[in-house]
Design a protein around this nucleic acid. Structure first.
Length: 265
DNA sequence: TCGATCCTGTAG
DNA sequence: CTACAGGATCGA
């Protein structure tokens, strides 16, 4: 489930507990979770201190001493958190680090689609260059969105989910933002009117900020993501809150898209 | 830009 | 049993 707000919530919680931690040992319980690297590469984290933790799009970056950084991507079902004793971790944990003080930094991931990789800081910069603008940053203005939209012929929904344009928006919040802005997900983003692009800009901010509050709240208990009240997402055939028309489900880029055919023309 | 792929779990 | 799940990447 994690999109930007959920990943941000994970980071907030983790930052307090993990920064300053010294890694004593790395354990790869599922080799696939560290691909395309070798499990042994994570051993390079041993004896390093976690200096700083940040989020970039949906990536969690743990900067270590010695010019290295861990990159964690939660994908669909991942979660990253601290446990008091590294020895007592759940069966779903794919990778974990034991701190010198005995605590565990664990990467739990039911579907095992997520990844934990280690990089030289310089190499990481290269990877992160491809990630688009942070939607909650100052630079993300309606004008900026407009200028990006003008250059893309992608359907609006696909455009929003493309991490190279805007970082951190996934399937749920893309659908919700488009609904609020009355934009048809199939419409080429290029062809969306300036007025609607402005509405979309506001919708993105509103949806993400709202979800951020929910996500932070829900993280008092680890392991579960809060869901906001969705207007269209996962509401196939249910009546639209605004016009009572049945919410439609279509497939775009192999993913479900939910929208109101009446409100989003 | 489409489809396959990486995985497991759950709902119908 | 099949369909579907909030993501990203790769090759055709």
């Amino acid at each position: 489930m994690p999109e930007l707000p959920e990943v941000e919530a994970v980071c907030k919680k983790l930052r307090k507990e993990a920064v300053g931690g010294v890694i004593a040992e790395a354990f790869v319980l599922r080799p696939g979770s560290v691909k395309p690297q070798y499990p042994a590469d994570l051993d390079n984290a041993v004896a390093k201190t976690i200096l700083k933790l940040e989020r970039r799009g949906k990536n969690i970056l743990l900067h270590l001493s010695g010019g290295l950084a861990l990159r964690v991507h939660l994908r669909m079902t991942g979660n990253l958190f601290i446990i008091p004793d590294a020895r007592f971790h759940s069966a779903q944990v794919r990778v974990y680090f034991r701190f010198r003080d005995g605590r565990g930094l664990v990467f739990e991931d039911t579907r095992a689609l997520g990844r934990v990789t280690i990089h030289e800081e310089t190499a990481l910069d290269g990877l992160m260059e491809k990630i688009g603008i942070e939607p909650l940053s100052k630079g993300f203005t309606a004008a900026k969105l407009q200028s990006m939209a003008k250059k893309s012929r992608k359907p609006a929904k696909i455009f929003l989910m493309d991490q190279q344009h805007i970082a951190g928006i996934g399937n749920m919040y893309a659908a919700e933002a488009l609904f609020r802005a009355h934009i048809n997900p199939k419409q080429p983003i290029q062809a969306v009117t300036k007025r609607k692009i402005e509405a979309l800009h506001k919708a993105i901010l509103d949806v993400l900020r709202k979800a951020m509050k929910d996500a932070v709240r829900s993280y008092s208990k680890p392991g579960s993501y809060q869901q906001m009240d969705f207007a269209v997402y996962c509401r196939k055939a249910k009546p639209c809150n605004v016009c009572k028309q049945a919410i439609a489900r279509i497939v775009q880029g192999g993913r479900s898209t939910y929208y109101c055919p009446a409100c989003q023309r």
